[in-house]
Design a protein around this nucleic acid. Structure first.
Length: 836
RNA sequence: GCCGCGGUGGUGAAAUGGUAGACACAAGGGACUUAAAAUCCCUCGGCAGCAAUGCCAUGCGAGUUCGAGUCUCGCCCGCGGCACCA
C-alpha cells in the first residue's frame, strides 16, 4: 500500500459516488423504514462555504450514512435559499444581475460540498429563486389569501432606511435591522401580513404553536425563545368610565388583585381616545405637545429613556369601578399602544414602572397587598443570610416602607384595603374580581400575546413577487393558478427608492385583470425570503411535481423531518414561520401532522482561532477549500466532529487538525497488518475492545456525541497498532464504523482489501453483548470516600469477598488500623467504601 | 431586570452520584537519521518528596450523601434569548 494521500483518493471516490447515486439516493418506492435528515438550506453567499457549514453538514452526513447502513431509506437533500438582499445589493453596486451572482455562488457551494464528500441526493436539489420553485411559494400565498390568512393592512411598521424595505418584528433586534445593523424606524404603511396569530392556540384540530412545542424534541433554549416571543399573558380587561363623558377607558391587567391600589390611569400617546376627548381636555396644547414629542422619538430612544415621562390630562377623571374612586388620567410613553388595550391601570404600590412614574409625578402610592402574608420576609428569614439583629431592624423598616408606599412590592400575597376582597389571596381575589366584572358586564378574562402577525411584503426586487393584481373595477384579484409563476422582469433599475424596483418596470407593472380583462396593476412588492423557506422541506419529498407543491402520497412517505440541523439564530424566525406553514396545511387538510421538525439540534458556532467570531473584516476566516487542499476532507470532517460537542461554540485550531490526520494515517497503515483468520490466534482483548467500540460509536452517533465516538475509535486504533497482526474481519468492522466519519479513506482501504462493492453497502456491525462483559475489574477501595487502593479481581466478586479483599489491603489498613468501622458500602463490579 | 445555557490542566475537551482530566493538541526529554521531516517511546493539574506516597484541586460559599465536577440552595463571572408586554 502506498502512503495515505487524500489529494489522490478523495477526488477518486467523489467521482465514484457521483457515478453511483443509488448509494445515497432516497427511494420513493422502497418499503424500508424512512429517515428524513435535513440541514437548514443555506443562503449561497459569494463567500462560499464556511467551516461552520461544514460542521453541521458533516453531522447530518454521518447520521445519513449511518442510517443507510442500518437499513433505513434515507432522504438527505440539499438546496438553496437563494433569494435575498446581498445579491441585490451587489447588483446595485455592480449592475450584475442577481441571477448571475446566485448561479455562481451556488456552483461554488456545490463544488465545495462535493469536495467534502457529503452524500446529498442531488436529484432533489432546490433553488428558491427558480420559477419552478417560487411558483409554489406564490401558490402558498394565494392559498393563505383565499383562506383569510393573508391580508393587507395599514399600520405602524418597521422600516429599515438602509435596506429600504419594511421588516417583520422578528427581523428587528434591539431596535436595529437584523441584517445590516442600522436603526429601524417606524412608518405608517399598508403592508401584507400572514395571520400567524391564528395558530398560537389550538385552531380546529390543529395543535397551536405554543402547545406544539411540548411534543417536539428540540433544545430547551429554542423552545423557550419561541415561548418568550409568543409572550402569552393571562389577565383581565375591563373599563374605567370617564367622568363627564360617555367614553370609557379599557385597560388590560394581569394583576387585577391590585385594583384597589389604582391611583391613576395611563393612555399610550397613540391612543385614539386622546383625540376623541379633545373638547373635554382643558390642557389640550400641553397634551398635544407631549404627543408630538414622543412621536419624534424612535422606539430605541423610547426604550432607552430611563425617566418615565408623561402629562396629566386635565378636565377629566377615570372612575375605578371597584370602589368608585376618581383618579387622574395621564398620557405617558411608557405605555405601549400595540400591547393589550394601549391603556393601563396604574398601581404604583405593586408595579415598578408605575412606582417610578408616581414618584416623578408625586402621585399617591396605596398598598393593597400585605407583604408579610406572602413571605416578604422569607428572604430575610434565611438564617444563613441574616441572623444578626440589625437585619431584623432592616426588615421592620422595609415592611413599614412597603405599607407606607415608600417601597414597591411586586409579589403576590394577602389583600388589604380592598373592600370585600380584603384577606383573600391574590389568586383567589383575581378569580372573584373577574367574576364580578362579568356580572357587571364591564370586563372579562383575556389572554394577550406579544406575537404579532407576520409582515411578509418587502419593497425589494430579489424575492418572489406577491401574486396579486389590483383592478380598477374588481379590486384585489389573486393571480389564477394557471398564470403562475409571476416571474421577475429583467427591465429593472435596482436602485432602491423605498418602492419596490418592480414598480418602475413597465413590462411587469401594467397587466390585464384576470377577471374582467380591464386595465390593472400588479402588486409590486415581493415576499420576505422567510416565506420561501417556510415550506421547502415539503418540496424535497417531491421536487419535480408540476401539479402540486408536493403530492399527498410523497408527503406521507417522507414527512415529518426526523432530524433537523441548523443555527440557533433561527429560533424565532424560520423555525416559527415553518411551524406556522405546517399548521396551516394541517388545518386545511393537506397533511395529517402539525409539526414539521420532530428532532432539532443546533450546531455551535465555530469561532476563529483567537476566540472571536470569524469575520472577513477581522481577517480570521478559515476557508474549507484550503484545509481540504492541505489536510484532506476526511481530516477536516473528523476534526470538526472531534473538537467538542456539536452544540457548543468552539474555537478553530489549525494545529489541532493534525491529530485527526495522524489518526487517519494510523488507521490506513493498519491495513498492512490485516490477515485472514487462519493466520491468527483468537485475541480476546482486541475482540472485547472492538465490540465495546462498536457499541460506543453506535450509541454516540444516535445521541449526536460525535466527539466521543471518535475518541473511542482512536483508542481502538492505538491498541490495534500494538498488535503484530490483526484479523481482516475485525479490521473491516472498524472500517465500517469509521466510514460515516471519514468516507473517502474508508472506501479506499475497503477496496484495497479486495472488496469490489462500496463500503456503504455494508451492514452496520452489531456488538456482541457477551464479548463486552469484563471478566476482570479494578475494584476500587475507598476509605471515607477517598480512594486508597485499586485491586484487580474478577468481575462478579461477591459482596463478602470484596469486603474481605478490601480489608486485607495493606494500603487500606494504614487508614483503618485502630479505627472502628461503622459500615462498608459495596457497589457491585465497582467499589468498596469503608466508613470509619 | 427576567429566562435559558455554561464555568474542569498550557489548549480543545472526557467523566449512568462511584479511580477527575479519557481522547487529542501544545510543550519537554529520548530513540532512529550524516542531518531534518516523518515515525516510535517517555514525562506532562498544583505543592512536598530521591521515591513509595501524602495533601490540595472541577468559578466562590454552604448543604444533602458512605461518596458530589455531577444533586439542592445562595453568590460571582461568561455566552445567548427576551425586555417599559402592565
Amino acid at each position: 500500500m502506498e502512503n495515505y494521500d487524500p489529494k489522490k483518493i478523495e477526488p477518486k471516490w467523489q467521482q465514484y459516488w457521483a457515478e453511483h447515486p443509488e448509494l445515497y439516493a432516497a427511494q420513493d418506492s422502497s418499503n424500508k423504514p424512512k429517515k428524513y435528515v435535513l440541514d437548514m438550506w443555506p443562503y449561497p453567499s459569494g463567500e462560499g462555504l464556511h467551516v461552520g457549514h461544514v460542521e453541521s453538514y458533516t453531522a447530518t452526513d454521518i447520521l445519513s450514512r449511518y442510517f443507510r447502513m442500518n437499513n433505513f431509506n434515507v432522504l438527505h437533500p440539499q438546496g438553496w435559499d437563494a433569494f435575498g438582499l446581498p445579491a441585490e445589493n451587489f447588483a446595485i453596486k455592480t449592475g450584475v444581475h442577481p441571477t448571475e451572482t446566485t448561479a455562481k455562488a451556488i456552483a461554488t457551494f456545490k463544488r465545495q460540498m462535493k469536495s467534502m464528500g457529503f452524500s446529498y441526493d442531488w436529484s432533489r436539489e432546490l433553488n428558491s429563486s427558480s420559477p419552478e420553485y417560487f411558483k409554489w411559494t406564490q401558490w402558498f400565498f394565494i392559498l393563505l389569501y383565499k383562506n383569510g390568512l393573508a391580508y393587507k393592512k395599514k399600520g405602524k411598521v418597521n422600516w429599515c432606511p438602509s435596506c429600504q424595505t419594511v421588516l417583520a418584528n422578528e427581523q428587528v433586534e434591539d431596535g436595529v435591522c437584523e441584517r445590516c445593523k442600522n436603526e429601524v424606524v417606524q412608518k405608517d404603511l399598508e403592508q401584507w401580513y400572514f395571520k400567524i396569530t391564528d395558530f398560537i392556540e389550538k385552531n380546529g384540530n390543529t395543535v397551536g404553536l405554543l402547545e406544539g412545542l411540548e411534543k417536539v424534541d428540540w433544545p430547551e433554549s429554542i423552545k423557550h425563545a419561541q415561548k418568550n416571543w409568543i409572550g402569552k399573558s393571562e389577565g383581565a380587561e375591563f373599563e374605567f368610565s370617564i367622568s363627564g363623558s360617555d367614553k370609557k377607558i379599557k385597560v388590560f391587567t394581569t394583576r387585577l388583585d391590585t385594583v384597589f391600589g389604582v391611583t391613576y390611569v395611563v393612555l399610550a400617546p397613540e391612543h385614539s381616545l386622546v383625540s376623541k376627548l379633545k373638547e373635554k381636555i382643558s390642557n389640550r396644547d400641553e397634551i398635544e405637545k407631549y404627543i408630538q414629542e414622543t412621536k419624534k422619538k424612535s422606539d430605541l430612544q423610547r426604550m432607552e429613556a430611563k425617566e418615565k415621562t408623561g402629562k396629566e390630562i386635565k378636565g377629566i377623571k377615570a372612575i375605578n369601578p371597584f370602589n368608585g374612586e376618581e383618579v387622574p388620567i395621564f398620557v405617558a410613553d411608557y405605555v405601549l399602544a400595540q400591547y393589550g388595550t394601549g391603556a393601563v391601570m396604574a398601581v404604583p404600590a405593586h408595579d415598578e414602572r408605575d412606582f417610578a412614574f408616581a414618584k416623578n409625578n408625586k402621585l399617591p402610592v396605596n398598598n393593597v397587598i400585605d407583604p408579610d402574608s406572602y413571605g416578604f420576609f422569607a428572604k430575610w428569614n434565611d438564617p444563613k443570610k441574616v441572623s444578626e439583629e440589625q437585619n431584623y431592624k432592616q426588615q421592620e423598616k422595609d415592611y413599614q416602607d412597603v405599607l407606607n408606599g415608600k417601597k414597591v412590592f411586586i409579589y403576590e400575597g394577602k389583600l388589604r384595603n380592598s373592600g370585600n376582597y380584603s384577606e383573600l389571596e391574590s389568586k383567589q381575589a383575581r378569580t372573584k374580581m373577574t367574576e364580578w366584572l362579568g356580572k357587571e358586564g364591564i370586563g372579562k378574562k383575556v389572554t394577550n400575546y406579544k406575537l404579532r402577525d407576520w409582515l411578509v411584503s418587502r419593497q425589494r426586487y430579489w424575492g418572489a413577487p406577491i401574486p396579486i393584481i389590483y383592478c380598477d373595477k374588481c379590486g384585489m384579484v389573486p393571480v389564477p393558478e394557471k398564470d403562475l409563476p409571476v416571474v421577475l422582469p429583467t427591465d429593472v433599475d435596482f436602485k432602491p427608492t423605498g418602492e419596490s424596483p418592480l414598480v418602475r418596470s413597465k413590462s411587469f407593472h401594467d397587466v390585464k385583470c384576470p377577471t374582467c380583462g380591464g386595465n390593472a396593476q400588479r402588486e409590486s412588492d415581493t415576499m420576505d425570503t422567510f416565506v420561501c423557506s417556510s415550506w421547502y422541506y415539503f418540496r424535497y419529498a417531491d421536487p419535480h411535481n408540476q401539479e402540486e407543491f408536493a403530492s399527498r402520497e410523497k408527503i406521507k412517505k417522507w414527512l415529518s423531518v426526523d432530524i433537523y440541523l441548523g443555527g440557533a439564530e433561527h429560533a424565532v424566525l424560520h423555525l416559527l414561520y415553518a411551524r406556522f406553514f405546517t399548521k396551516v396545511l394541517h388545518k386545511l387538510n393537506y397533511i395529517d401532522f402539525d409539526e414539521p421538525f420532530l428532532k432539532l439540534r443546533n450546531q455551535g458556532l465555530i469561532l476563529a482561532e483567537d476566540g472571536r467570531k470569524m469575520s472577513k473584516s477581522l481577517g480570521n476566516v478559515v476557508n474549507p477549500d484550503e484545509v481540504v487542499g492541505e489536510t484532506g476532507a476526511d481530516s477536516l470532517r473528523l476534526f470538526e466532529m472531534f473538537m467538542g460537542s456539536l452544540e457548543d461554540a468552539k474555537p478553530w485550531s489549525t494545529k489541532g487538525i493534525v491529530g485527526a490526520r495522524r489518526f487517519l494515517e494510523k488507521a490506513y497503515r493498519l491495513a498492512n497488518k490485516a490477515r485472514t483468520g487462519s493466520e491468527l490466534k483468537a485475541n480476546n482483548k482486541i475482540q472485547t475492545l472492538l465490540h465495546k467500540t462498536i457499541k460506543k460509536v453506535t450509541d454516540d452517533i444516535e445521541n449526536f456525541r460525535f466527539n466521543t465516538a471518535i475518541s473511542a475509535m482512536m483508542i481502538l486504533v492505538n491498541e490495534l497498532e500494538k498488535e503484530e497482526k490483526i484479523s481482516v474481519a475485525d479490521y473491516e468492522k472498524f472500517l465500517i464504523i469509521l466510514s460515516p466519519f471519514a468516507p473517502h479513506i474508508a472506501e479506499e482501504i475497503w477496496s484495497e482489501l479486495g472488496r469490489k462493492e462500496s463500503i456503504f453497502l455494508s451492514e452496520w456491525p452489531k456488538h456482541d453483548p457477551a464479548l463486552i462483559r469484563d471478566e476482570e475489574i479494578n475494584l476500587v477501595v475507598q476509605v471515607n470516600g477517598k480512594v486508597r487502593d485499586s485491586i484487580k479481581t474478577n468481575a462478579d466478586i461477591s459482596e463478602d469477598e470484596a469486603k474481605e479483599l478490601a480489608l486485607q489491603s495493606e494500603k487500606v489498613k494504614k487508614f483503618t488500623d485502630g479505627q472502628t468501622i461503622k459500615k462498608i458500602i459495596f457497589v457491585k463490579g465497582k467499589l468498596v467504601n469503608i466508613v470509619i
